Computed example of a mutant assay.
Amino acid sequence: MTAQPAGDVNSSPGRRRTARPRWAVAAPPLPTERHAKRHKSLGRALLNVLLGLVAVVWLLPTLGLFVSSLRTAEANAESGWWSSLLSPKGLNFDNYAAVLGDGGIVHAFWNSVLIAVPTTVLVVILASLAGYAFAWLEFPGRDGIFLAVVAMLVVPVQIGLLPVAKLFGAVGLFGTLPGVVLFHVAYGLPFAVFLLRNYFAGVPREMLEAARIDGGSEWIIFSRLILPVAGPAIASLAIFQFLWVWNDMLVALIFADSGSQPLTVALQSQMRQFGSNIDVLAPGAFLSLVVPLVVFFGFQRYFVSGVMAGSVK
């Protein structure tokens, strides 16, 4: 009996298996694959450069406003703000100390907070309840009422200024903070209801039916199931609504008096003497800009996830 060689234990007569040498390496990628990877890397680098340039263009006015707020009125009148980047010795925070010491500007800042925050909270609460009702509750005329709400999106805000002003004057709300808040709530609800209704309608029906089988009421389903799932959409709506109201000047200019005017109106009243009081306008405008910037950069990830989800579902 002849013994098989040590390297051919698993081989059979007539069948030979050749083992791959241990020193063999993978074949190099084809030239087309190398070119594709190179073009992909080059395209990604060009995209990053383009996005960087767009970011610089967007942030350049903010940088100019901040540098101008640190300069004296004489320096701003003599040269542009970019000259201080070469010699920043004259930059200081004296203008901010003067603005924060001005009781009128500080009062207007808190008026902006008292207008923007309650408006955002009311719009989010009312739109969430209405969006759930339009999406999952059956009641007579539901589709017609929803179409009427959506149709209000095309109504310009300028059309309602005069009639609402007369109405607020009759009921004693004209020239008050509640009047400004109610106007913003009324014109913010159509878009908010449209956005949240579309998002709520995308929630799987099986989740709601399972909750109802387990004995959950509509309020429990709404508060414990829908609201946690719709967190990105609600957050994005709150951010948008806050930014719109904070930056508004037209509505506040008409409906707010001297004691309830927000920061935008207070700064607009200073524009008549822009050449002589830029040391007040620049730091005041930057303080007004800081709040939207903090809100945007702090919650920007909710913009895409919430709005895109609500628009396609």
Rank of each mutant, 00 (worst) to 15 (best):
Q4A: 14
P5W: 05
A6F: 01
V9W: 03
V9H: 09
S11T: 05
G14E: 03
R15V: 15
R16C: 12
R16H: 13
R16L: 13
R16A: 13
T18S: 12
T18I: 13
T18K: 11
W23A: 15
A24R: 04
V25N: 10
T32P: 11
S41G: 10
G43P: 10
L47Y: 06
G52I: 02
L60A: 02
P61F: 02
T62C: 14
F66G: 11
S69W: 01
R71G: 08
E74R: 06
E74M: 07
A75D: 14
A75R: 13
S79P: 01
L85W: 06
L86I: 11
F93N: 08
N95T: 01
I105Q: 06
A108V: 04
A108L: 05
S112L: 01
V117C: 01
V121A: 08
V121Q: 04
I125S: 06
G131L: 03
A133G: 09
A133K: 08
A135Q: 02
P140W: 05
G141H: 00
D143H: 04
D143K: 02
I145S: 15
A148E: 11
A151E: 06
L153N: 09
V154H: 15
V155L: 08
I159V: 15
I159G: 11
P163I: 02
A165K: 10
A165V: 03
L167A: 14
L167S: 06
F168T: 10
G169A: 03
G179K: 08
V181D: 14
F183L: 06
A186K: 04
Y187I: 12
G188R: 00
P190R: 06
F191Y: 15
V193P: 06
V193K: 00
L195H: 10
L196T: 12
R197L: 05
F200T: 09
F200P: 14
A201C: 12
V203T: 05
L208I: 15
R212Y: 10
I213V: 07
D214W: 00
G215C: 12
W219A: 13
I220C: 14
F222K: 13
L225Y: 07
V229H: 13
A230Q: 04
P232W: 01
P232D: 01
A233Q: 04
A235T: 15
S236T: 12
A238Y: 00
A238H: 02
I239H: 11
F240H: 08
F242E: 12
W246I: 13
N247H: 11
L250F: 07
F255E: 03
G259W: 09
P262Y: 00
P262M: 02
L263Y: 02
T264Y: 00
L267D: 07
S269H: 12
R272V: 09
F274N: 14
F274C: 13
G275R: 02
S276V: 13
P283Q: 04
P283S: 03
P283H: 05
G284Q: 07
S288K: 09
L293G: 15
V295F: 04
F297R: 05
Q300V: 08
R301E: 07
Y302V: 03
S305Y: 01
M308T: 15
M308G: 11
G310M: 00
G310Q: 01
V312A: 13
K313C: 08
